[in-house]
Amino acid sequence: MSDLPLIVFDVNETLLDLRTMEPTFKRIFGDKVDMRLWFADLVMYSLALTAARAYVPFTEIGAAVLKMLADAEGIRIERADGEELKEKFATMPPYPEVPGALRKLRDAGFRLFTLTNNLAEVQTCQLERGGISEFFERSFSVDSVKVYKPSPQTYAHVENELGARPSQLCMIACHAWDTLGAVAAGWEAAFIRRSGNDILGVGPQPQIIGNNLADVAEQLIARHAGR
Results as ranks from 00 to 15, higher is better:
203 G>R: 04
14 T>K: 06
129 R>Q: 15
191 F>Y: 10
190 A>F: 02
168 Q>A: 15
78 E>S: 10
87 E>Y: 14
54 A>K: 10
183 V>S: 05
50 T>L: 07
156 A>M: 07
8 V>A: 01
47 L>V: 09
170 C>T: 09
56 V>T: 13
184 A>N: 03
72 A>C: 10
70 A>K: 11
200 L>F: 12
11 V>Q: 09
157 H>Q: 05
218 E>S: 14
43 V>K: 15
94 P>G: 03
23 P>N: 10
17 D>K: 02
104 K>M: 15
98 V>H: 02
44 M>D: 15
123 Q>D: 08
209 I>Y: 03
33 V>H: 11
166 P>S: 00
53 R>T: 08
85 L>P: 14
164 A>V: 12
124 T>K: 06
13 E>C: 08
63 A>L: 14
131 G>T: 08
132 I>L: 01
86 K>T: 14
27 R>K: 14
33 V>Q: 04
93 P>M: 07
224 H>G: 00
70 A>M: 06
173 A>Q: 02
156 A>V: 12
192 I>S: 00
135 F>C: 02
23 P>M: 05
47 L>E: 12
107 D>E: 15
175 H>A: 10
141 S>R: 13
19 R>Q: 11
57 P>Y: 10
129 R>T: 14
83 E>K: 15
115 L>D: 06
73 E>G: 10
148 Y>K: 08
183 V>P: 03
32 K>M: 04
17 D>A: 10
114 T>W: 00
159 E>T: 10
214 A>I: 00
49 L>D: 13
203 G>F: 03
15 L>F: 06
25 F>H: 10
189 A>F: 02
44 M>V: 12
88 K>N: 15
219 Q>N: 00
37 L>W: 02
46 S>V: 00
171 M>T: 00
60 E>C: 05
102 L>V: 07
154 T>P: 05
199 I>H: 06
70 A>T: 11
12 N>S: 11
95 Y>F: 13
205 Q>H: 01
225 A>E: 13
52 A>H: 08
31 D>C: 09
134 E>P: 03
170 C>I: 05
19 R>S: 15
100 G>P: 05
150 P>A: 05
179 T>V: 14
184 A>Y: 04
95 Y>E: 00
49 L>I: 00
135 F>V: 11
177 W>R: 07
152 P>R: 03
71 D>H: 14
61 I>P: 07
5 P>D: 05
187 W>H: 04
218 E>H: 04
45 Y>L: 14
187 W>E: 01
